[in-house]
């Protein structure tokens, strides 16, 4: 790890009913993970528009993990709507030359400590590998990097 360790910040959207307590359980177990992670407690991630994710990347967030409740969401239909939105975000990310693996949609339960750690570790590894958001844009179609800068 070493040098790559602080490759960029990871934002975690943790839903209040499941993933947020899941992160708490990870803490109670003193299971260490990257400190470059910032958890936002949210009621339902379906609240965020496509632009929010793009803005986060242009602000310098290197990776985003949406830790939803999956099908166990207290808001019937929210997960499906969220999944459709994330598909659209992926399209927009591609247009801007952003590696779509920087955004991950997953479901974490209140005691899913290991799944939590795994997700964080995977994103951490990916961010180390990719570097700052937009740095992969060089390899992307022409105009993508420009589009990103214009955000």
């Amino acid at each position: 790890m070493g040098a790559g360790k602080h490759a960029g910040k990871i934002l975690i959207l943790a839903e209040d009913a499941c993933a947020y307590p899941g992160a708490d359980a990870t803490g109670q177990g003193h299971m260490s993970y990257s400190a470059d992670t910032y958890i936002l407690r949210v009621k339902a991630s379906v609240l965020f528009p496509e632009q929010f994710y793009l803005d986060c990347f242009s602000k310098g967030i290197a990776g985003i993990i949406i830790m939803s409740c999956g099908a166990e969401t207290p808001y019937p239909g929210a997960y499906e709507a969220l999944a459709r939105r994330i598909d659209r975000v992926y399209v927009l990310m591609k247009e801007r030359g952003l590696d779509i693996r920087r955004l991950r949609l997953t479901a974490i339960c209140t005691v899913c400590t290991r799944a939590f750690l795994k997700e964080v570790q995977q994103m951490q590894d990916l961010v180390c590998q990719l570097g700052a958001p937009g740095s992969e844009a060089a390899a992307a179609p022409a105009g993508a990097a420009k589009a990103l800068q214009e955000q």
């Binding site: 339960c109 209140t110 005691v111």
Partner: peptide
């Protein structure tokens, strides 16, 4: 197949 803890804790 809900996580038991997720239903009991609340």
């Amino acid at each position: 197949l809900d996580c038991s803890s997720c239903i009991t804790t609340p």
